[in-house]
Structure formats: structure tokens, C-alpha cells
């Protein structure tokens, strides 16, 4: 492994920057994601910071069942992210389409559009589950290192 790659992995593990993308969710998961960032759960103390642009992000947090309108935008955003990048599918919708499975406007599951690293089930997910998902992702990257 080159020294630069080592540096990138180290910084990713120390402070993963996330980008939140709503691909047609009902807002339930979205407010729980924001909840995880605010004082009660406060994941920022572990270096997890919400970023505004895909070009700064390491982890793409996708909530929602991916509507047909949003699918190509989701792909564009994923392509704009620098390597190494990971995708977290949040909520039952993100995992499988959830309650919206079978709706005509939906391509159920984020995995049909993007490669997914972590699935976090729940409708909506609890903030504890989101934190657990991030920790598991970091552990798996650490294992690969």
C-alpha cells in the first residue's frame, strides 16, 4: 500500500464525513439521521461530520426507496464522490423498498442503483442503529487495512 493510500484510510477512519441524500423517503429516517447529529446522540464527537457536497464526503447515507426521478441523480452524486467511498442504505425503504415495495414510482432498494456497504433496517431507524451502522462500517474498513 502506498503511503498516500495509508493516509487516506487513516483519515477516513478517524473522521468519516457523511453526505445525506433523501431519495424519496418519508422524512422519518431523515429526521432520525439529523437527530443522531444533534446533542442527545451527537455523533460529531466521534468525528462524524455532515457535509454539504458530495465532493467532500466519504460515506453516502441514502434514505428512502429511490424514486425513479431520483435514481439518476443519486448515481451522479455517487460518481462525484472521491474514492474510497461507501454507501449506507438507511431504513426499511433503503434496504428493500419497505412499505413502498410495489409502488410504480419506486425502484425498491438502494442496491438496485448503487453498490451498498451497510444496510440499516428499521422503519424508521433509531439513531442508535445509525451509530451502530457507522461503527460496523469503520470496523470492516479497519479489518481490510
Amino acid at each position: 500500500m502506498k503511503i498516500i493510500d495509508k493516509l487516506i484510510t487513516w483519515s477516513l477512519l478517524k473522521s468519516p464525513w457523511i453526505l445525506h441524500f433523501n431519495s424519496g423517503a418519508c422524512n422519518g429516517c431523515d429526521i432520525e439521521i439529523v437527530d443522531a447529529l444533534t446533542p442527545k446522540y451527537d455523533v460529531e464527537r466521534f468525528g462524524i461530520v455532515l457535509k454539504a457536497t458530495p465532493r467532500h464526503a466519504d460515506i453516502l447515507v441514502v434514505s428512502g426507496p429511490v424514486t425513479r426521478q431520483q435514481a439518476k441523480r443519486l448515481k451522479t452524486i455517487y460518481e462525484q464522490m472521491p474514492e474510497p467511498k461507501f454507501v449506507m442504505a438507511v431504513g426499511a425503504c433503503g434496504c428493500s423498498g419497505g412499505v413502498f415495495n410495489g409502488c410504480y414510482g419506486v425502484i425498491p432498494g438502494v442496491h438496485q442503483t448503487l453498490p451498498v456497504s451497510v444496510y440499516i433496517p428499521g422503519c424508521p431507524v433509531r439513531p442508535e442503529a445509525i451509530i451502530d451502522g457507522v461503527v460496523k462500517l469503520i470496523q470492516s474498513v479497519e479489518g481490510k487495512k
Binding site: T67, Q69, V99, F100, Y104, G105
Partner: peptide, 29 residues
Amino acid sequence: GYNHRGMEKAAEERTYLQDLYLIERVCGI
């Protein structure tokens, strides 16, 4: 339309009780 999922159509294919849980997910707030 970026968030259009087709819930009204989906509601026609489910029972009244199932729809209750679908309608709940119109919006999380």
C-alpha cells in the same frame, strides 16, 4: 415530483388496515 412514489395507487391495492400503515408513511413528521 422527485419524491413521487405512487402511494395513492398503492393504497387501492391494500386493505383499509394495511393502508393505515402506508398512509402513516406519507410523511414522517
